[in-house]
Amino acid sequence: MITFLFICHGLCAIALLGAITHQAAAVWIPVRKGSASFFTRFRAVKAAGYVNAVIVLFLITFIIGSIIYPTYRTGARIYMEDLRMSAPVGAFEVKEHLVSFGLALLPAYWYYWRLPQKPEDNGARKGVVLVLAAIIWAAFLTGHVLNNIKGI
């Protein structure tokens, strides 16, 4: 069951990563002129359309992560501690705190991105999506590297 949840956690994280990266790219590097390149098409999306997907995927990934966390704590972490691998253990500590910040940020993310959008909140909107994207990327990469060291 834990293995199944762990795979779901990873799959949801990948989907979340895609959604938030699309949105952040559309907001921070908007398409000025029509072009057929992959990178242009990647950015040429309606950013507001990703909000609900990001919130739902973040919550699902977070909840599954909080369920499988004790298995990591009693298994993979102790394995790494025995090998004195303090950097990976510390990286997971940082990930744990970053995703907590991300969870706290989700309501504000929804608040500033809901429709109709106020022009005076444009800066907050861009800032919050960038911070959330950075958190999600950091959490994903940390989880991926740690899983390569010792899966649960």
Partner: peptide, 22 residues
């Protein structure tokens, strides 16, 4: 309204300092 992104950025810097010993 920018506090909503500035606060996490500052907290992440503080977090990096707290966790530096790892």
């Amino acid at each position: 309204s920018g506090f909503v992104w500035l606060v996490p950025v500052v907290l992440i810097v503080i977090l990096a300092w707290i966790e530096r010993t790892w």
